[in-house]
């Protein structure tokens, strides 16, 4: 029991004397525990942080939503000067999409391995995921170099680069997170089959980045 939940839920609790010992000597001054979690606190706390992350991703998603809205409006009302293209090459981005979608599955795989106590399998799948992410970034770079327009060529080009670039930034962060989690999941590391908030957080984030890409792909490349 944490200090938070130590008081009984009885309605007369306000007059109940403070008896539970955990309360007064409480070490959990900071209930979210930026500290290390142990034992039975973990479920409770992990829960908060996950919820916090979800809210953060909602916000992050709104940033993308704003950019998408801007892109769509530009497209609707500001026609391109001749030479600016809407029809991008599809091959590379499609491969990219595949890479990211697959990486979501591999990450999922890593997480379930961990839960089954397969530390090694988990780390292997994590590496594969990170590799897929890196491949995505590399291929994105390749696409940038092959494109006939630059950041300031026209409105479409600018929006294209800002959107894909902002997403690429997310992927880069994601890959770094995966590598950190990979390191923490080593034998004796802070992530194991009991305590794996970091891994779950990274997973959720990765799925989010993946989902954003799918929308982005649909709007920018297919539309």
């Amino acid at each position: 029991m944490t200090s938070l939940s130590s008081a009984s839920s009885s309605t007369t609790a306000s007059t109940a004397p403070a008896t539970t010992s955990a309360t007064d000597s409480t070490p959990e001054l900071h209930p979210s525990s930026d500290h290390h979690l142990s034992g039975d606190h973990e479920e409770h706390h992990g829960d908060f942080r996950m919820f916090g992350l979800v809210l953060f991703l909602v916000g992050d998603g709104m940033t993308f939503a704003g950019l998408f809205a801007a892109y769509l409006t530009f497209r609707a009302v500001n026609p391109l000067p001749s030479g600016g293209v809407y029809d991008l090459e599809l091959l590379l981005p499609t491969i990219n999409t595949a890479l990211l979608v697959i990486s979501s599955f591999t990450f999922h795989r890593a997480a379930s391995q961990l839960r089954q106590g397969e530390g090694f399998g988990c780390r292997l799948w994590l590496l594969i995921t990170a590799a897929l992410g890196a491949a995505f970034l590399a291929s994105q770079m390749l696409e940038y170099f092959k494109l006939p327009f630059g950041l300031t060529s026209n409105l479409f080009a600018s929006t294209f680069y800002v959107l894909t670039g902002f997403h690429g930034l997310h992927v880069t962060l994601g890959v770094m997170m995966i590598l950190i989690v990979w390191w923490q999941a080593r034998a004796g590391g802070s992530i194991n089959s009991e305590s794996h908030f970091g891994l779950e957080a990274a997973e959720l984030y990765w799925h989010f980045v993946d989902g954003i890409w799918v929308v982005l792909f649909g709007i920018i490349y297919l539309l």
């Binding site: 938070l4 008081a7 001054l29 900071h30 209930p31 979210s32 908060f48 916090g52």
Partner: peptide, 10 residues
Amino acid sequence: GARDMAFPRL
């Protein structure tokens, strides 16, 4: 009825 915010460091 809490002793602090959910994420004090944040």
